[in-house]
């Protein structure tokens, strides 16, 4: 019961954090949509994303400029160069705080918090 509540709370936390990004795209589906980061106007949205361990995070580039998702600490593999509408995903198994940035536009910084 206690575990279940915690899981629900975490799920709510990440759902709240991605609700803006998801609102326009939510479609009824059998599969549960993963947490998403949209890349737009040279920024990661949301800038900080909280997810439960085991989540597959999906980044999608909506800019006309290419971007690359790179872990600042080398804690997950670099994405390839993402052209417009290209996506990249990584499943975060271990809890922790993962700071990442775009290696060609390094002012773009985001964080994934895995709980």
């Amino acid at each position: 019961m206690r575990m279940g509540m915690m899981a629900s709370a975490l799920a709510l936390a990440w759902m709240a954090s991605v609700s803006n990004a998801m609102a326009a795209k939510a479609t009824p589906s059998a599969s549960v949509p993963g947490p998403r980061v949209e890349i737009q106007n040279f920024a990661f949205m949301p800038k900080t994303l909280m997810v439960p361990a085991g989540s597959k995070v999906i980044w999608t580039n909506l800019d006309e400029e290419p971007h690359i998702v790179v872990s600042a600490g080398g804690n997950f593999p670099n994405s390839p160069g993402l052209d417009t509408n290209d996506s990249y995903s990584f499943t975060f198994v271990k809890p922790g705080t993962y700071t990442y940035y775009c290696s060609i536009h390094p002012m773009m910084v985001g964080t994934i918090v895995v709980q």
């Binding site: 600042a72 700071t99 990442y100 940035y101 290696s103 060609i104 390094p106 002012m107």
Partner: peptide
Amino acid sequence: NVLNLKAGGL
């Protein structure tokens, strides 16, 4: 000046 760029940097 486009290699080894640091997170948050120029």
